[in-house]
Nucleic acid binder design. Structure first.
Length: 270
DNA sequence: ATTCTATGTCGAA
DNA sequence: TCGACCTAGAATA
């Protein structure tokens, strides 16, 4: 379930659970065997998130553990002495806490220079206080690519995934096919601020909720529209269901290999 | 039992 | 634009 908010939440939880503690580290599944052995017994200092990437530092070690969950990955923190169930790429544990990483696209040790290069090549992250939205604007306003493509491009903006993309476009009534170059700066500024707020709420709650109170289905006498990912949304995976604002059936299509959802009436080109 | 799907990314064609 | 890859749970048979 990994968009940027998941990774920032995870960074916080891992730092809370393990920061300052010597941890035992292993790779039950085997594919991170050498890396796991390298950090075994060391003190975990901190974990930070940059977009959808996680970087973990250990005392006295130059290399940083780099994790990217990909589309299926999960990192679950639980109590002491959990049995290993299924494929666990990396297990971190203290006497009281166990964290299991499964199915990541990336779990590796990175030299500091490589970690810096990674941070350098991704766009501003709305969850970081030091992020500069104008860097994203520079790329968007100079691109003929559709805004739906640009929002998912991690070099443009880091941390947005398929749910936040669909919901952000809906909330600002932007046509997914609108070229970046045709988006106004005012709209972009509002989208960035909104995204930052939405994602911060996501970090707090661990879910993606994007529906404003006045559009909440309960207030309209209908059933809650809670998606499988656990949040309440306007369009994401609501294909064929009535738009919460205008009642038109929500549309879907595959856009650049990913499912895109939008309301054809609310999100018309202006 | 098998197939499908998923909040992602990369690299080849 | 397409397939490959990582995994688990849901859907289908």
């Amino acid at each position: 379930m990994p968009e940027g908010h998941t990774l920032h939440r995870l960074a916080f939880e891992l730092t809370e659970a393990f920061g300052g503690h010597a941890i035992s580290s292993s790779s039950p599944q085997g594919r991170f065997g050498a890396g796991a052995a390298r950090v075994d017994g060391r003190v975990l200092e901190r974990t930070e998130a940059w977009g959808k990437h996680l970087l973990i530092d250990f005392r006295g070690l130059r290399e940083r553990v780099h994790i990217h969950l990909g589309i299926y990955g999960s990192f679950v923190i639980a109590g002491a002495e959990q049995p290993v169930v299924g494929q666990v790429r990396w297990r971190l544990a203290t006497g009281s806490t166990t964290a299991d990483l499964r199915g990541p696209t990336v779990c590796e040790l990175l030299e500091p220079e490589a970690a810096d290069a990674l941070i350098d090549r991704i766009g501003p992250d709305p969850l970081r206080a030091d992020a500069d939205p104008e860097k994203a604007w520079l790329r968007i306003s100079s691109s003929r690519a559709p805004i739906a493509t640009l929002l998912m491009d991690q070099r443009v903006l880091a941390g947005v995934g398929n749910v936040y993309r669909a919901e952000l476009l809906f909330r600002h009534r932007v046509d997914p096919d609108l070229a970046g170059v045709d988006l106004d700066h005012e709209t972009f500024t509002a989208m960035w601020a909104d995204l930052s707020t939405l994602m911060r709420a996501g970090v707090r709650t661990g879910r993606i909720d994007t529906v404003d109170p006045e559009h909440e289905p309960e207030a309209m006498g209908r059933d809650p529209r809670v998606d499988d990912h656990g949040g309440e949304v306007y369009v994401y995976r609501r294909t064929g269901q009535p738009c919460l604002v205008c009642g038109t059936a929500v549309c879907t299509r595959v856009h650049a290999g990913r499912n895109l959802f939008w309301c054809p009436r609310c999100q018309q080109r202006r």
